[in-house]
Amino acid sequence: MAKNKLTVGFVALTGCYGCLLTAIFNEEALLELANVVNIASFPFIKEKNYEGKFDVLFVEGTAVSQQDKQHLIEFRKKSNVLVALGACSSDGGVPALKRFVPKKTFDRLVYPKNPDIADLHEPMRIDEVVQVDHYLPGCPPDKEQVLTFIKNAALGREMKKHLYDNPVCVECRSNGNRCLLEEGRMCFGPVTRGGCHAVCPSNGLECWGCRGPTSDANLNKMIDLLKEKGFTDNDIKQRLLTFTGIRFNEIRQMNVEWVPSQ
């Protein structure tokens, strides 16, 4: 293990492993990356995983179980810089949608478990359990941002908590897209943190807010605008709560009743 190299780890709570793949899918840079930093822990692709102290530890997934919470506390203890990788970790992600869904919709799926993986009362984004130094949000996060982050860390550059805080619309416009909102579609680009190259609107899909609200998001105005366009409260809440509902709900409380009639 050469000196001066950053000791980096990639670990997961409960998630889909997509964020970890995002790191690996920097195919052309992966081997160079492994030379520049010491990838000391990455259980998805490594058998031997370092247990000591990390300079930078990337954490994927939502804390949904007692075990996740325990692991997360250990991850924090052994890392100088803890990075929330992806929507689940940064903002709760799809698993945290459970916080807004009536219990009876998933009652049939609950089963007895080992106490270790017993459900937490509510799924949590990781900064509800430990302090987080940086966020690389998104479902999935942008793979180039993972690289940029590691490069900056290796060079000892100062970084903000979020690398990017402009709304999705900025990149969407510069991509030359037609505005989906103007076409009458429920796009949350104006209130959502960009840095994703506006990849969804550029491929024909409205922004669902997967990177969470910008620090100055005017959600009330956004919701009024969508209502003017004919969307119902329920339409808006359903969409907004899907990926980063915990964050949006902190700006404006949304009680959801969406169990369909049979």
Binding site: T14, S65, F106, L109, K113, Q238
Partner: peptide, 17 residues
Amino acid sequence: RAVEGSRYFEGLLVGKN
């Protein structure tokens, strides 16, 4: 043993469009 926590996707889908 699968030692993953539960995400309840089949429940989260209920009520969705």
